[in-house]
């Protein structure tokens, strides 16, 4: 059994999804924690200091490469699994099983993930790309990201798209968090009940915090 065989079997593909998914969840914790500094009410001083550390230090910049690799792997493997799985039915049922046996969002991970991907394209073009191009994609001078947030989140449609992206993320996490641990082999009901509760709480709190950021700027909740 070669490593290639391990990770290309149907169970192995799920392992790839689970490992990269948990990795991205860890990233979300860092991201939401750092961005929460906007609520320090100091005109973005603390937030920009945090952003400076992430943008002008080699350690997080090297980790950023790993983040992109993990993200790309999660996206490509995810989309491939969606098409692979969809091709296995052949003729569709005339009457759908629907929500009688499973939650709609557990069956819609591909769709939710695609919405998040589209949101990410906008999100990166709003902040990451202008900042990195200003830095010459190395460790150059950064832009004032707090000011950039004020500017980006003054437009209503952008705020709406960000909130929709966060809602998709919430549902994606509601299934993905606990499903990843099932894929890693957590079968004990005792452990699984803790993990699924934790996953649910995480899926509500983290996307809610993210959604509150554009809303805070748009409605002027921070000075």
């Amino acid at each position: 059994m070669t490593w290639k065989q391990v990770f290309t079997s149907s169970v192995g593909k799920k392992l790839v999804m689970g490992f990269t998914g948990i990795f991205l969840i860890l990233f979300l914790i860092v991201h939401v924690g750092l961005n929460a500094c906007i609520w320090a009410d100091d005109g973005g001083k603390m937030f920009n200091a945090g952003a400076h550390f992430m943008g002008a230090n080699w350690v997080p910049r090297i980790l950023e490469v790993g983040l992109f690799l993990g993200l790309i792997l999660h996206i490509i493997q995810g989309l491939m699994l969606v098409f692979y799985n969809r091709s296995k039915r052949g003729i569709q049922y005339a009457v759908d099983y629907g929500n009688k046996g499973s939650k709609w969002y557990s069956r819609s991970m591909g769709l939710l993930g695609t919405i998040i991907l589209l949101f990410l394209v906008l999100h990166l073009s709003n902040f990451w790309f202008p900042n990195r191009s200003n830095q010459g994609f190395l460790l150059g001078e950064e832009i004032n990201l707090y000011q950039k947030m004020e500017e980006v989140f003054s437009v209503l449609w952008v705020v709406i798209v960000y909130v929709l992206g966060c809602i998709s993320l919430a549902y994606h996490l509601a299934h993905g968090f606990q499903s990843a641990f099932k894929t890693f082999g957590v079968y004990n009901k005792r452990w699984h009940s803790i993990i699924s509760t934790l996953g649910f709480v995480f899926a509500i709190i983290v996307p809610l915090m993210f959604a509150l950021m554009p809303l805070s700027f748009y409605f002027g909740w921070i000075s």
Binding site: G101, S102, S106
Partner: peptide
């Protein structure tokens, strides 16, 4: 995998049925 079944996504429809 060889028989052409799909991969599991832990939706729970199997258990329910």
């Amino acid at each position: 995998d060889k028989e052409g079944f799909g991969a599991c996504t832990n939706t729970g429809a199997c258990e329910a049925t």
